[in-house]
Design a protein around this nucleic acid. Structure first.
Lengths: 229, 229
DNA sequence: CGGCCGCTTGATGAGTGTCAAGCGCCGTGG
DNA sequence: CCACGGCGCTTGACACTCATCAAGCGGCCG
């Protein structure tokens, strides 16, 4: 059974955010809802021709960029309600790969629908522009973060996940990180051993409790003391 | 005396790139040409309300992002023909500051002209989207670079400047870097001393010749051997 | 039950930041 | 015209963060 965009509880994060009801309807008609993904499934691959934007309905996914040397970097962890695929807009090819981190489901807005949609949703271009610009701002944030000490990076990462999950109705103090230590390292520019050690360190300080991928935040304020701002 | 967009020798880099002659004309009418800037002059400040896109006609400028801790990071060095200001599109406020590195001149496309322009240039939205996407891809590149060893970063920086200057008709092997060592460091995530030492190192290896801000590239291939691809 | 993968923990070293001193160039003012 | 002062740059010594290498543990799945 498919959920219409107007009934989707993620609409305030997703494309419909800021649209009129009639516009959401037009969007709804253009969107395709896709069979579930499993861990490791690839939504799109770096180099593939750009053919759609994607919105996550449930689960998590990672946006991975491989540089010339084959070094993998995780650009972002995608949470439900988020829209991705903008990395293909400029060149017509995706610059990154989008890969499911667990069993997930998503919606797809085919690229060929965009011209037609703009008749029903005049503001769609500026909305896309805003969202693409947001991705750029996010990348500014990440670049600044990557130059900070390891402690700050990990603290900021945990807090970022916490607030984004909270906004989606999940507990901000108790959640599962769907990334391995290696992947967290790839995201923060750290070795997996450093990630593991820092988790241990934060735990010893009583800031968090770590059980594998399960994180309990015990002292948000102290954690915030590490991450800049 | 003002140069029309259609007569500007930078048009193939600038907004007119890919436009029809009539579209360029409409663009030309919307653009304002601005008095020259001097070193240190600020085109826009982080936090200012987004009110225009900017194209550089001559000179160079730096796009600076300051993180919460007051740490300055130079996102890009802007060369003639390049368009900037996209960092203000998403939130309506500029996320960075754009500052002249030397005596420069630029054109301005006021934000309030965009709706009107889209009537004459239907493709303008997708062009803007492409350019904003390009900025995102550039930032991916920079993020990957910042995690590489210092030698690679500096080599890649010099080669990047070289090719971009070459594309604009300047010598690819002999040019002036308008940044201080500190600013190069801010761009590459290095201390200014490291930048200075690496220049000395490359010079000792016979790859380049350095005289203050003047760079001669003596062995491009060897330099390419450092930067990843 | 066995093997593998993800994780932890320890030891070591390389790559860079930091601190410090000194040099040269250039613009300013006497 | 020259002396002075400041800024940008170089060079050296040192410290420290974090990557790397290595070993071992535990849980999960076949």
């Amino acid at each position: 059974m498919q959920v219409a965009c107007s009934d989707c509880n993620l609409s305030r994060f997703c494309m419909p955010s800021g649209m009129q009801p009639k516009e959401v309807e037009a969007l709804n008609d253009a969107v395709r809802r896709i069979r579930p993904l499993h861990k490791g499934d690839i939504v799109y691959r770096a180099g593939d021709q750009f053919n759609a934007l994607f919105a996550l309905k449930s689960g998590t996914a990672k946006l991975v960029h491989s540089d010339a040397g084959g070094n993998e970097s995780i650009i972002t962890v995608m949470l439900p309600g988020e829209v991705l695929g903008f990395d293909g807009l400029a060149s017509g090819r995706y610059a990154c790969s989008l890969i499911a981190l667990e069993t997930s489901s998503y919606c797809e807005l085919p690229a060929h629908q965009l011209p037609r949609l703009s008749q029903f949703i005049p503001s769609i271009h500026s909305m896309l522009l805003q969202r693409a610009g947001k991705k750029f701002e996010d990348s500014l944030h990440r670049m600044a973060l990557i130059q900070r000490p390891a402690e700050e990076r990990l603290a900021a990462f945990v807090l970022d996940l916490s607030t984004r999950l909270h906004a989606r109705g999940f507990s901000p103090s108790e959640f599962r990180i769907s990334l391995t230590r290696q992947e967290i390292g790839d995201h923060l520019g750290l070795a997996l051993e450093t990630v593991s050690r820092l988790f241990g360190h934060f735990e010893a300080l009583g800031l968090i409790r770590v059980q594998g991928k399960l994180i309990h935040i015990l002292n948000v304020d102290a954690l915030r003391g590490y991450s800049p701002h």
